[in-house]
Amino acid sequence: MTELLHLSAEGVRLELLSLGATMRRFDVATAEGWRNIILGHSQLADYQANLGFLGASVGRFANRIDQARITVEGQVYELDANEPPNQVHGGGGGFSRCEWRVLESEQTWAELSLTSPDGDQGFPGQVRATARFEVFSHGAQVTYTATTDAPTVVNLTTHPYFNLDGEGSGNIDHHRLQIAGSHFTPTRPDGIPTGEVRTVSGTALDFRDGEFLGAARLRAEAEQLTRNGGFDHNFAIDGADVRRHCRLVGATGLGLEISSDQPGLQVYTGDHFAGELGTSGQRYPARAGVALETQGFPDAPNHPGFPNTVLRPGQEYRTTTRWQLC
């Protein structure tokens, strides 16, 4: 049975679902009162149907895998192709579709766990994963851990769509996004990386100084750099360890900084939305929110030059993403 958890700290309230270890609401205190800044479904059945991964924890492997096939230590594994012929976000029965077990929860934190058996969605090895959500003064974070009993690949992320003007308030074209990434990974039309890591210099994907999403999207369309009319791109974040990945500022002036130890950041502008009913009862237009997903690179198991995503017995996968209001 799906559990509903409520966390709170100064200036922030976080609502979680055990289904998919999902962030359903992220309410923040503003001068006008509480404001929910992430998109969510109006009813549990929509989460059960996995419509759009809204706020969910995705895995075993976030983003896309070419031909739904990986090779781990010389062994080829055929995966669930839920975006034929490729896989996206771990397969049709991936982590976002699973009931996570609530291990413990307090006012400011909650820890959930999931055991993924050997062969789950085609992946080798039994993986035990945890997700620890925490809130603090005007912010929140999640830490994922994972262990395995056989060599496998792991790439976990959270998939919230942000609208800092408020969930259900319209589109995010007037949000300004700054990304601490000087390179991106170009893709084929189906979103699979070509293997190249290309500079953003001189392109509409240069967000280093900050760009309004609407204006940047129009330039990217002219340069044929959009996917399905918007952004759906992985940026290689400069530096190492925990560092700022991006800063998003809404039209009302509310800002959010996202930090992580992950090498990549997927930016997806939600161009698929077409009237879905949200938590507020408002219907979502195209670009109702922007997904900012800290991650390992898409299709990394099939590109030796990308940051490694292999996890072996005796190792622990651990990653933290922090959302700080500013």
Rank of each mutant, 00 (worst) to 15 (best):
N50S: 05
L51P: 03
L51H: 12
G52H: 06
F53H: 09
F53Q: 01
F53P: 00
L54P: 02
G55M: 14
G55R: 10
A56N: 02
A56K: 09
A56G: 01
A56D: 02
S57W: 06
S57M: 14
G59Q: 10
G59A: 12
R60G: 01
F61G: 02
F61P: 00
A62Y: 10
D66M: 13
D66S: 15
D66A: 15
Q67C: 07
Q67D: 09
R69E: 10
R69H: 12
R69C: 15
I70M: 04
T71A: 06
V72M: 01
E73H: 09
G74V: 07
G74I: 03
G74Q: 09
Q75D: 01
Q75H: 08
V76Q: 11
V76W: 05
V76M: 08
V76S: 14
Y77R: 00
Y77C: 00
E78Y: 03
E78G: 09
D80C: 13
D80T: 13
D80V: 11
A81V: 10
A81M: 11
A81H: 03
A81P: 04
N82M: 11
E83A: 10
P84F: 06
P84V: 13
P84K: 05
P84E: 03
N86F: 12
N86Q: 06
N86K: 09
N86I: 06
N86R: 05
